[in-house]
Design a protein around this nucleic acid. Sequence first.
DNA 1: CTTGACAGTGAACAAATGTTTACTATAATG
DNA 2: CATTATAGTAAACATTTGTTCACTGTCAAG
Lengths: 189, 189
Amino acid sequence: MSTDKLGLLKKFFKKNRRLPSYSEMLKIFGFSSKNAVFKLINKWVEANLLTKNDGKLAPTSHFFALPLLGTIKAGYPILAEENRNYLTLDDYLIEDPTSAFLLKVSGDSLTGVGIFEGDIVVIEKKKQATIGDIVLAQIDHEWTLKIFRKNRSSRISYLQAANPKYPDFYPKASLEIFGVVKAVVRKFN
Amino acid sequence: MSTDKLGLLKKFFKKNRRLPSYSEMLKIFGFSSKNAVFKLINKWVEANLLTKNDGKLAPTSHFFALPLLGTIKAGYPILAEENRNYLTLDDYLIEDPTSAFLLKVSGDSLTGVGIFEGDIVVIEKKKQATIGDIVLAQIDHEWTLKIFRKNRSSRISYLQAANPKYPDFYPKASLEIFGVVKAVVRKFN
DNA sequence: CTTGACAGTGAACAAATGTTTACTATAATG
DNA sequence: CATTATAGTAAACATTTGTTCACTGTCAAG
């Protein structure tokens, strides 16, 4: 394992949400010449773990990201190292961080689409939805998370659960959409 | 909405994975005095969106994190602003980034536990699993993602699908565990 | 033994950094 | 009206930044 300098750097970044300056790295890595740092950094830039733009150092996506392996097709081994992708969950799931928020799900009305009690959904604030979207809405002034539908003949908007034990929800007075579910996330244990 | 300077900063960070220097912010924000930047930054530090340690600017967790609203209990409004939590999906889902990787799921063998084709699972590398864990394993040299079980009487380890259409998988020769699924993630559209 | 490649030291330096101070214009308040 | 806060300009500055150059010791290969 050696004294894993890259690990130390990652630890610093995780803690401080920024890269250390060369002088700080001196201490972190235990060097006594900035040039030692300089050479080490350049090696990491070479390896595409860090980049320099405008002379400023920044991590690349490889620096954080997790390797995304291909699918397992029954019996075949996982894709080889070469065609690996790297992925950050935040980047993958959240397109517009300014309009997104999270919501902890309760109830079993969406089990049919694989959304269970305790899951966390990523919601993008918007007033309009496409038919079939899972929406955060206020139906007759009650908040709920359901599938957005439109009656084929009457063109009336309604909400539908993804669980046969619930009926369709037609608004008596009002139906207002506040956001659309873009992703679900579930943690085990 | 005004010309949302904080949004511009976030955009820069998202693109470059670092904060801009004050001189860079001059251009980004359209100021012509560094002092204007200075004052603005200090306001954000005050608001706990940024921090300074050792005179170096860094984002706080609030800077990225999304507000996590409480559960919707039928009919009740969403929790008020005060008791909001803030959450980063990466932090929430990935405990040990060094031993974790992602895997795109194919097949329908885990639909019963809400894992579908196209979902991405977070796997933590480890050789041992607890009964009931969803594991990445090699059974008779074939890779698969299944639930780890042990026969009550015989104490023999086997794999189980979460889909009634599949039988239990008892290893003929070998069963080796490579990792345990810690989380699932699904993106809509 | 010689050579060359590494890995690190130490010093020097131009350029850029964040901060401070003094000042101006605008708008809001009483 | 006078006052006070707010948002910005402009210039000056010590400190720190990343980089470069010259040098040393170590180790492996021919």
